[in-house]
Design a protein around this nucleic acid. Sequence first.
DNA 1: AATGAATGAGAGTTCATTCAT
DNA 2: GATGAATGAACTCTCATTCAT
Lengths: 211, 211, 211, 211
Amino acid sequence: MTEARSARVDRRHQITEAAVSAFAERGYHGTRIRDVAARAGVADGTIYLYFRNKEDLLLSIFETKMDQLLAGLAAILVGVDDPDERIRRFASHHLGMVRDHREAAEVLQVELRLSNKFLKRYRPEKLWAYLNVFAQIVRDGQAAGLYRRDIEPFIGMWAFFGSLDELAMQWVLSRRTERFTLEEAARQVADVFIRGLRTDASARPILVEAM
Amino acid sequence: MTEARSARVDRRHQITEAAVSAFAERGYHGTRIRDVAARAGVADGTIYLYFRNKEDLLLSIFETKMDQLLAGLAAILVGVDDPDERIRRFASHHLGMVRDHREAAEVLQVELRLSNKFLKRYRPEKLWAYLNVFAQIVRDGQAAGLYRRDIEPFIGMWAFFGSLDELAMQWVLSRRTERFTLEEAARQVADVFIRGLRTDASARPILVEAM
Amino acid sequence: MTEARSARVDRRHQITEAAVSAFAERGYHGTRIRDVAARAGVADGTIYLYFRNKEDLLLSIFETKMDQLLAGLAAILVGVDDPDERIRRFASHHLGMVRDHREAAEVLQVELRLSNKFLKRYRPEKLWAYLNVFAQIVRDGQAAGLYRRDIEPFIGMWAFFGSLDELAMQWVLSRRTERFTLEEAARQVADVFIRGLRTDASARPILVEAM
Amino acid sequence: MTEARSARVDRRHQITEAAVSAFAERGYHGTRIRDVAARAGVADGTIYLYFRNKEDLLLSIFETKMDQLLAGLAAILVGVDDPDERIRRFASHHLGMVRDHREAAEVLQVELRLSNKFLKRYRPEKLWAYLNVFAQIVRDGQAAGLYRRDIEPFIGMWAFFGSLDELAMQWVLSRRTERFTLEEAARQVADVFIRGLRTDASARPILVEAM
DNA sequence: AATGAATGAGAGTTCATTCAT
DNA sequence: GATGAATGAACTCTCATTCAT
């Protein structure tokens, strides 16, 4: 039973990876189920034993990758209390994942958006959980008097995510990665948001430190 | 001749608007040429007298709307020299356009991204021109000693655009606009970026003023 | 009125020639009415003032060219009584026309055959009139005791025409005309049929002469 | 494996036969893939599992039938050395096939010619192989001093084929087969060409025999 | 569980023809 | 008579999905 389950998990994983690679290369609409099946080394019909349909396959990639993203984020924030540092680590982790899982990132960035179901009907709960981590950092910073109270965490969270996402997209789209490094982008985005969130009072000591 | 030209322009416009509305409602892939034709009140074949194919229709919407966006931005920045104010106006104008042209924004935000040609092959020169306005503001601010030199305008430009774009997307996707207003979002994004870009030196006087 | 009629004839001729050239170049199905109109320097709709439809245009080419072919054949046979010589002139004239009106020949040879209406429903009376000239030569030769009576003129006529037609087709299809000359082909086909038609009695004197 | 292969061959054959019958009845352009599919008792898409496209289906009919034609010709000529007799058998076999495979002949005769690809781009190697059999008979006859050397085998081959082809076409087009029999046509064409090819010297003995 | 042949709905695009000007 | 913008029927081919083996 355990073996059977494990075999099932493996096969599912095998198909998912094939789909990630195929979607990244040719796009969701440009990829045929047959392509995925061929890459996974299974028959066309086998895909449907593991996924309801093509869109389910795409959504499943999102779920899997978001789980990894969330787990990684949690791990890297463990024991870190300083909101500034938490923001820096969030940015660094996010773009680090993009760099280390380029194909997956490409699918998430580019291909996932074209799924109407995903964008309009499907509630991406895991994305919300992910972004809420940032919103909570802002709230914590505000509670500590470190961040301004006139920035709504909800708006800040989307703005922050938008910045990271767009930079990831540009990095993914430009095959010429020399344009900028994801590490530098992470540093600058974190920096801008940290300073942008600071209260005037909290700004000063930092300025002094910086001097 | 003028009449003929004008008739041609009108008909083209008529089809474009029908496409904007159809794409916004049902998505690019979910929209059939027949749907667009019906909304425009013309025969299917007529579409092809004005556009090479379906994708050309989509791309043409982008071109037209970007022209409007660029023109509006230029108009609103005329005579404004202060980089901070220029950033505020940029954000306000961008999200104002989203609010006033919701359907078009929806198409640009959501549907355009699904066009592989657009994202990977087509170089959206007008988008670059648009974003370069922001990059130039940063450069001007840096030259004036107002903004920090360790923020690369190129990175900042994508980060800023990403923030606006993501907030626009969330506003467009959530039919419940009560979540947040675009005006408030514009104000907060501009604020975060302005403060985030400031040099420590330039930050102080502002802080004083703020007090 | 005469002027009007003449103008009408000219315009019709102009369109016909444009069609011949277009059909020869791109084939009947590969040619759009628009192509013909453009070559003729008229508007698309104008074609329909002179021809019922596209097929009518094709058939009209056939009629016109067959008239020329028939007239030319009649002219070249005037005063020639010897059946052998008449056969030689027939072959020579037919392939000569192909050589001198390559485009028209190409249309007749290749494109006309693809019109179901032409082949199956339309009775090509003019083709029959043309071929009957050959059948009559055979009958005359038989009456004169020159040609064998066991060759049916009807069968001979199609066989003869088939030979000429096929050679014309090969010449037209092979842009490399060096393979063989139409003159030589005409001579050989005439020769084979003349000898093939001769009675044994009539064959002998010739043989002697030939010696 | 053998079963699978055989099933594949059968299905392909089934579709081919349906296409032959459909093309013969309504013509290539007049036949929709749906018609072929319906006659074959398969779904539209199934056609495309066996043939690249509609034209491939037409070309494939040609290939298949030419294979049969060539094989039949070879069989009927085995052990026959006399050029005259070989010509008679060629004509008899060719028109016999037309008679026994009327639909296929109709497609080959009429419909195949309308395929530009076939006529202009595709080199019908099998047709050449078929006709070369006749050219070789002529060459052998010439080498044996039986046939005149001033008839080029290349020209003779097309002339001979043209005669057979045209008679086949007329027989196929005229639903009234009473006009002439293919057997009689074969006899007469062979006769005309044999006599037409003979040298004067070789003509005499035959004449005596004939007496 | 796995296969892969078969399905058939679906849609973009072309182009001959029309007709208001 | 001439125009050419508009029409809309027609048709091939694709590909996600199914299901008998």
